[in-house]
């Protein structure tokens, strides 16, 4: 019998697509370390001693507040993940464990946000944030992102909580734990894998978002790295060394983290993927 799909063809397709996916990223990083002449004349040559020139990086780190923007992004992302997981797990627990009159209605109310993008309410969000005196603060970004990510978090965490055997919660009740302690000492530790999945779903869009930083914290040193790079690129648009270095500065940390955590991340994506 002739094999209908030869292994060679499969690898050829996959390798070609992988090359297509990686090429632009590699090209930018490679050229960011080169002198301007080398960038234009030999763009496909890797950085070598004779064409090496870190001028772009000295501009990026000298002229702008890249470090601050990084800190802002980290603060916003970590804060968002923390609050989304905490509030989401608490709500998911209450919705799955306790009977009360508005249980189903509340679950539906919370799930609306899975499908309806929060951006559509931007007009009023800006009004609200400025009424609360939170314009150009990271707090505003965190609150909006938590609201944006809670529905999916509640949905995923509810599914996981349902899988925790009922006996475990009841053993806790027999052991004399209050409902609060059952949640914090038994349920929360058991939710760790599920929370990793939710963290993955939350982290990427928050870190990469351009819209809300542009609307809510566009100036005053509260820019996130995504917006900061965007503004920097606009400013230095003709300075190729600076542009390439700025792009690389934004890419490399994400790349390093991705390579380290890709296994967990993909597993998180595949396990949490809505059936």
């Amino acid at each position: 019998m002739r094999k209908p799909v030869s292994a060679f063809a499969v690898h050829a397709v996959l390798a070609l697509y992988t090359a297509l996916a990686l090429f632009p990223i590699i090209l930018v990083i490679m050229n960011s370390f080169k002198a301007k002449r080398a960038i234009f004349n030999t763009p496909l040559t890797p950085p070598m001693p004779w064409n090496f020139d870190p001028i772009g990086y000295s501009k990026v780190f000298g002229d702008s507040a890249i470090a601050t923007y990084y800190m802002n992004s980290i603060t916003v992302t970590v804060g968002t993940i923390f609050l989304t997981l905490l509030f989401g797990a608490m709500a998911a627990w209450a919705l799955t464990e306790y009977k009360f009159r508005w249980n189903t209605a509340l679950a539906i109310f919370l799930s609306i946000g899975i499908m309806v993008p929060i951006r559509l309410g931007s007009v009023s969000i800006i009004q609200l944030v400025s009424d609360l005196n939170l314009i150009n603060t990271l707090t505003a970004l965190i609150l909006v992102y938590v609201a944006q990510n809670l529905p999916l978090a509640v949905f995923i965490l509810s599914e996981f909580i349902q899988q925790i055997p009922r006996d475990l919660r009841e053993a806790g009740r027999c052991d004399g734990l209050s409902e609060y302690n059952i949640f914090f000492y038994i349920i929360l530790p058991l939710l760790r894998p599920a929370m990793a999945t939710v963290a993955v779903f939350t982290m990427i869009p928050v870190w990469n978002d351009l819209w809300f930083p542009l609307l809510l914290a566009p100036t005053g040193g509260k820019q996130t790295i995504t917006l900061g790079v965007q503004q920097f690129l606009g400013q230095y648009i003709t300075d190729w060394n600076a542009v390439l270095a700025a792009l690389s500065t934004a890419i490399i940390p994400v790349l390093v983290l991705y390579v380290i955590f890709s296994r967990q991340l993909i597993r998180g994506l595949t396990s949490g993927a809505v059936k």
Binding site: L83, F87, F109, L110, I112, G113, V116, I118, L120, G121, S122, V123, S124, I125, Q127, L128, L143, V144, V146, A147, Q148, L150, P151
Partner: peptide, 13 residues
């Protein structure tokens, strides 16, 4: 948080 920063702005919009 969800009502204040997601549902209310959407309805208000």
């Amino acid at each position: 948080v969800y009502t204040l920063f997601s549902v209310y702005p959407l309805l208000d919009t």
